[in-house]
């Protein structure tokens, strides 16, 4: 257990939060994608799940992305667009279940967490500097 381990933990946090930001940006970019990558239907909002990971050698608790899974709870948006090429018999087009306000809030939280992990690294650096100053 040393300060390097604390840096590794903070780095795992940075990695996890940036993975989360990637998923959020995918959601925002695909907010109006009526067809997903597989061509099977509208794009489904993706959600990131985190998991605590214990480092066997140091016993420190880091974090990792457990999985990225689609949000199946929220229904697709239905928009009445009769002339649309993807409209069904009733003239409705299915759009992704992405809510931009939710994504914006999620993105803000991810940014805050990223900054918190950065401040851990900064504190570790200051502590290491103090430790090195003992040798002077």
């Amino acid at each position: 257990m040393d300060l390097q381990a604390a840096n590794a933990i903070a780095a795992s946090g940075l990695k996890a939060q940036s993975a989360r930001m990637r998923v959020i940006s995918e959601n925002i970019a695909n907010a109006d994608s009526a067809i997903n990558a597989q061509g099977t239907g509208p794009y489904q909002r993706q959600m990131t799940a985190f998991q605590a990971v214990v480092d066997k050698t140091s016993g420190a608790v880091g974090v990792a992305v457990a999985k990225v899974a689609p949000d199946r709870a929220n229904p697709f948006r239905q928009v009445y667009q009769p002339g649309h090429p993807l409209a069904d018999a009733q003239g409705l087009v299915q759009y992704p279940n992405v809510d931009l306000a939710v994504e914006a809030a999620d993105l803000r939280e991810a940014t805050r967490m990223y900054e918190a992990n950065l401040s851990v690294i900064d504190t570790n650096r200051q502590m290491m500097q103090r430790l090195l100053s003992v040798l002077q």
Binding site: A5, A16, A60, M113, N117
Partner: peptide
């Protein structure tokens, strides 16, 4: 400090 770093890293777990 290691434990606090773990807590902050897991603030969304």
């Amino acid at each position: 400090q290691n434990i606090v770093a773990g807590n902050i890293a897991n603030a969304s777990t």
